[in-house]
Design a protein around this nucleic acid. Structure first.
Lengths: 224, 224
DNA sequence: TCCCTTCTACCCCTGTGGTGGTAGGGCGGA
DNA sequence: TCCGCCCTACCACCACAGGGGTAGAAGGGA
């Protein structure tokens, strides 16, 4: 049973080149083509393709909006997003919207064919160049997290705890209540902590708490 | 010209299964096998393989250390790290150490063959499951960054700028100098910003700056 | 035109924050 | 045993932060 593919691209040449390429591939049946997102959504409803090759930049409705509409309507559709250049913002949006893959147009023909076959069986697929960027982001984030808990020179356990609470924006009084000690003691701990870290204001202490990884954005208790 | 492969795994069964698999594949020549990292480093020096299939968990010297040694000694070697389960910490280490790929042992035989061929021509390769995790991390980080600039209700451009500077731990005086306005004006801006965000101390403002994504850990100017 | 927002700037007042010093009890290493 | 570190706690002092109000200049929109 051939893989049914819909090609969506506003550029005539690109669209037809893809159609010809897919047509020549055994086991792949290009069932239709669209030149904008609106047409694409309509054709998915009509043709029920297995795979959609979707350009991003298009008139009327862009590829990302079209992808959202298509997946809302027919989740089993495998959408592969095509892009001319590596645009990481789109990677995020496309993948969280549920796109099955993300490849660049300068990918060799045989790899595009392979990509269609890959997503058709339900696997994810991302271009190496894009994967590399993902890895770099991952590595960067990971490095930041690894630096956590490791640095913070010479702080006693209590002082580390104090710094963590400073990092949540707590006042001395609030810290005292949370640790069930007197505010005077908190002031002493804060004093020592800031001296060791060479800080002069508690705002800097909050920065230090975040930068050291003691406090991670997204895991904080806001509001006061 | 066949792709010369070295197989490194402490488990006899896994090692020989891989050797047999690679032996049966046309264009692939399994030239040797090692059962620990130290042997692997020695064999790379002797055999100069194109590709190394490297297990992580091994006695004597683990796969990641061996990978580092091998790439320091012979950078053109393509190391593919094998793992039983998806262990993201290793992904980071392996890839930043220069590994060409990262695949799981439960990958179907034909895909393992394909992986060897892929890295042999210098391309990167990562298992879909691992890619998925990378994407999730990327998406998570990206989401945090996207929330920036978007949320932060009703702040004027100047107030946003003030909040960003508050987020670096700056005092009113420092902010005044950086923006070339009077400290009195800074106090006014700070006052309005904090009222709008329902904050009472500047430490909370620092927290808000980080949590909103206005300030990203790792991109801050410490010290003061 | 007038109004609203924004950015600029100042005064007054209260309070928390930040720094100095002092000190006792507990605990572990020399 | 004694020394040193850690946690606890207090006092005194002053600067900066935070909240109140007021106000003029500039720019955009009704």
């Amino acid at each position: 049973m051939a893989v049914r593919v819909l090609v969506v691209d506003d550029q005539y040449l690109v669209r037809h080149a893809l159609m010809a390429l897919l047509n020549a591939a055994p086991g792949i049946d290009p069932v239709g083509e669209a030149s904008d997102g609106e047409q694409a959504v309509a054709l998915v409803a009509d043709l029920a393709p297995d795979v959609v090759l979707m350009d991003i930049k298009m008139p009327v409705m862009d590829g990302l909006s079209a992808t959202r509409r298509i997946l809302a309507m027919r989740p089993e559709t495998q959408v592969v997003v095509l892009t001319t250049f590596d645009i990481p913002e789109y990677v995020y949006t496309a993948l969280t919207d549920g796109a099955a893959g993300f490849i660049m147009k300068d990918t060799p023909p045989d790899r595009i064919i392979a990509a269609v076959r890959t997503v058709a069986i339900g696997e994810m697929l991302i271009s190496p160049a894009i994967t590399l960027r993902l890895v770099q982001t991952y590595a960067q984030r990971h490095r930041v997290e690894l630096q956590a808990n490791t640095r913070l020179p010479d702080l006693t356990p209590r002082e580390t705890e104090i710094l963590r609470l400073l990092g949540t924006g707590s006042t001395n009084e609030e810290i005292a209540n949370q640790l069930a000690i007197s505010e005077a003691t908190v002031k002493t701990h804060v004093k020592h902590t800031m001296r060791k870290l060479n800080l002069t204001t508690r705002a800097q202490a909050v920065v230090a708490a975040y930068e050291s990884g003691l406090v991670i954005p997204g895991s904080a208790a806001h509001g006061g």
